[in-house]
Design a protein around this nucleic acid. Sequence first.
DNA 1: AGCACGCCGACT
DNA 2: GTCGGCGTGCTC
Length: 835
Amino acid sequence: MSRIEVAVAAPLFQTLSYSFDSDKDGDPVGRRVLVRLGPQKVTGYVLGLLPDEDVSFRILPVLRFLDDRDKPLFPENLVPFFKWIADYYHYPIGEVVKTALPGGLTLRNRKVLQVMPDVEKNTIRWPDPNIAAPDWFSSLLAGKELSAAVTKKILIETQFSKAIDELKQKKLIRIVDVLDKVKTSEKLELCYRKTTTIELPQLGEAEQETAVAKGADQLLVNGEKLSIPMIRTLVNLTALAREQGVDSVAAKDLRRMYSGASRALKELEKQGLVCSEERRIYRNPFGEILTHFPKPESLSEEQTQVLSEILPALQQQTFTPFLLHGVTGCGKTEVYLRAAEETLTLGRDVLVLVPEIALATQLEAHFVSRFGDQVVLLHSGLSPGERYDQWSLAASGRAKIVIGARSAVFAPLSNPGLIVVDEEHDGAYKQEDGLRYQGRDLAILRGRYNKAVVILGSGTPTVTSFASAMKGKFTLLSMRKRVENRPLPTVQIVDLRDKKEKNYQEAIGKKLHKELGLNLEQGKQSILLLNRRGFSSVYLCSDCGEPVKCLHCHVSLTYHKRRAKLVCHYCGYTLKDKVICGACQSTKLTPVGYGTERIEMEIQERFPEARVARIDSDTAADRRAFLALLKKMHQREIDILIGTQMIAKGHDFPHVTLVGVIWADGGLSMPDYRGAERTYQLLSQVTGRAGRGDSPGRVIVQTLRPEHYAIQFARVHDYERLYQKEMENRANPKFPPFLRMINLKISGGNEGQVQSTAAQVAALCRTGKHAGIEILGPAPSPVDRIRDRYRWQVLLKGADSPLLHGICGRVLGRYSSLVKGDIRIAIDVDPESMM
DNA sequence: AGCACGCCGACT
DNA sequence: GTCGGCGTGCTC
Ligand SMILES: [Zn+2]
Ligand SMILES: [Zn+2]
């Protein structure tokens, strides 16, 4: 028996030791095991081998392996990566691995309540006279199985415990442990292989029919009695195998050729002429046939220049991070593709991260065009089965290129030599629940562990990344020219404070209206951006001025006119739009503020003849409808497209010549030190959507703060000055990149308890070493109640990273004494949103 | 997390 | 008296 280090799927900060039979089970690393953990059975992930030294605890053998020999779920190179993440994000190691793996692969035992096998059901009475027999008891007697989830609920209800104990003692019912059934696994397909060498007569259909007509239901071929269906199937099998260049052929293909194949195959198998086998098939997530992008003959001067730095770094096979600063349409994609080509030539793998795969289909299409089935996809849009298959293709080394969203940074590639993070500034790289990791940062880390080249690409890099480039931590590569020398659009700022410009209660100013009308006349497409969905952001009482709030969250409800509903964007709570004011019972409520839905309606009133469409997370929930809309946009069947930041990302609309930003400063009033940066990024991205060679683009930016530098620098497309200004601002008072932050988030159902726990957390931070660390709070979070949970926070700021993490460790060390009832403490390292 | 063990309040 | 509440601690 050999000893292994296992991370179990439980919130433990340490790994545990188990033993296994190395002769029988082979290499254990990267495979799942089922292990005992106290009185339960849980999934563990094997991280490595351990020396046989004396220990103070007993070492249990693993119950069994959940992954086959030689089919590890993840390569060994991910192990130090996982450990670093667990440490840095203060997250249990097993949960880190669980987050990294595709879902549905973590099994554990659960309790199920059932009637004792040989007990006659109708003889059982509900034993507790004080309460009526509950529904679950009746369905149990009716012969239904209770699920583990239902059992859990029943066992939590203390009112039933007496009756259950009694029934258990009388041996009428029992509670058994069942293991989760496997949710995601390999998909197998039945195949047949010819095992006979007999030569088949070249029997055409006509001849077969003649034979049947003559009454011959069987023919003798080389001493074997074969029916016509058997011959036909055997002929088809031989032909298909030759055609596909394989030995065994899928039964379903044979059935498609001849419906009698199933029965014939069974007969053939019985006579030993064919044998059946299961073959693994890989579910294919590439839904639509993607556009083919041919490889360009030549590269631009800038592409050549940039590649002359990247390719040698790839050949050196050392960790080299690049920041590729290239405006929209500068031809970054071709740089990624050439770098990927070189990486494959060197026998290494490629990992490409994109913000949200649904919107990055063009990058996907480019990679598939160039590299075919060496590419796999990993993103949330896949079914669990597809995701598992794509994962296994990478894990087994059959796929060399992984393209995916944030979590693809954990892709099981054994030797990544190139990691690309496209649109590195995108907020989607930060996971905002559970393991709150930053995909971009982890990409850099993985590059370091795997001695890979990392390319962070963006037209508007995060200030932090650009600062790293300035400090020399990243090599800065710049691409300033748009391909085909498309000019940058002209940007005009419109001051919304000017009463002559815009009427009260309207969103579109005179200037924007005029330009939209002009574009419409000329049959050109326009885009309108407003980063808020719904009709209005608040629904105000005209009598007392109070907004309608969510019952479960401390936020105003958003009015959705088409659905005639008031909706909470945090928890989904909805009200009909016929409400009375909760404060004064008034019925006079009016929508105030703007959302995309309201813009859509205003546009329809202003331009009744225009073909208008809207893209936001309400309308894009259905990926197929979303893709259909994009297609309509490409085919110029839409004149004006209205949307949230979604329209600014990823997708190129070649015929758009006008972009209108309804309210550019919306993000500047948020409690976020990156407000200016984000505003610039959004404006810059949406600006990049306007114009093509022959028809230059115009951008109208409406704002209440026309003088703000983020808006002014966006007008002149000057990233460097934005960067400098931001660095000045963040130097005093200090914000990242001049220091680091960790947010300790305390939440729970009882406001007083949350507040006092938050106070204890803050006190704990302040006791002990904290020199040079600013400890802010405890304070209520900006949204201090979501889903009936109160939320407080303690924010740590400081340049001394080890000390910051030390303070977190101190809090975590007291975790069990701090956390009572439903209180939770979440640690958000490098927070991006304080909400 | 999930489970066992252990120590105090309010029932028979 | 004990039944059951949940605070505390542990899991290789
Ligand atoms: Zn009111
Ligand atoms: Zn809500």
